[in-house]
């Protein structure tokens, strides 16, 4: 199934792109499953997602935990802790 992966701030810069449609196996259809799928690419992907203490995840614009389920077409964003205001 396909989901849309978005990256922001330093994560976007490390990977060099802000959006990608990713095809993941149905067995990996949670936030945690997607994370492992992306880390298996190695390189910068493994580095940016290795320490989830400094990564936040949102699914369809709502903050999501690791066990949150994913459905086809979901928008999954990875980003660092926020620093606005």
């Amino acid at each position: 199934m396909k989901v849309k992966v978005l990256l922001f701030a330093n994560l976007r810069e490390r990977i060099g792109q802000s959006v990608e449609v990713v095809d993941i196996p149905d067995s990996a259809s949670t936030v945690a499953g997607l994370r492992i799928h992306l880390m298996q690419r190695g390189g910068a992907w493994q580095e940016i997602l290795s320490d989830m203490k400094v990564v936040r995840v949102a699914v369809n614009h709502d903050m999501a935990a690791a066990n949150a389920p994913l459905n086809p077409g979901d928008e999954v964003a990875f980003f660092p802790p926020v620093t606005g205001g």
Binding site: F8, A9, N10, M63, P80, V82, T83, G84, G85
Partner: peptide, 19 residues
């Protein structure tokens, strides 16, 4: 807002930019 709203600041210091 400072802890929940998705904004990220990148500062442009003389020695370079940093998040």
């Amino acid at each position: 807002l400072k802890t929940q709203a998705p904004f990220w600041k990148k500062e442009h210091h003389p020695e370079g930019a940093r998040w």
